[in-house]
């Protein structure tokens, strides 16, 4: 892993190191993602600035690549995950893990939980 891409050469998709994580949606959020609650996601290990990819990078990536619904505002609001959605990294609140700065590792599980209100 970690094959560095030379800035002077044009990197191709085959030479870019990637990581595979699982992304899950519950509480109705899966409806924005083609009604599929569980996704294996392969994404570049580094972001466009060449840093290790974080949850902060993952969220817009999901909007662009995984979301089938055009109502992005149901998932992201003002650049942040919409209020009422818990973000869990390996089943722990992302606020325990550094929030959007958490650096994703191969095999991580990211779970988005929409709060329920019914009773």
């Amino acid at each position: 892993m970690g094959e560095p891409t030379d800035a002077s050469t044009t990197s191709t998709s085959t030479s870019t190191p990637t990581i595979t994580i699982t992304v899950e949606f519950t509480g109705g959020l899966e409806m924005l993602f083609d009604n599929i609650p569980f996704h294996h996601v392969k994404l570049p290990a580094k972001n466009t600035q060449g840093q290790v990819v974080t949850i902060g990078d993952l969220i817009p990536w999901l909007c662009e690549n995984l979301m089938k619904d055009t109502r992005k505002e149901l998932f992201v609001l003002d650049g942040n995950v919409r209020p009422g959605i818990l973000v869990l990294i390996n089943e722990a609140d992302w606020e325990l893990e550094g929030e959007d700065k958490y650096e994703l590792k191969d095999g991580d599980n990211v779970l988005f939980v929409s709060t329920l209100h019914g009773g």
């Binding site: 149901l74 919409r82 009422g84 818990l86 929409s114 019914g118």
Partner: peptide, 17 residues
Amino acid sequence: VFPNPPSPEMVKGCGEI
């Protein structure tokens, strides 16, 4: 746990969903 409420458009009752 939830400092900000969800947008009202996202809140659907049992009678709706």
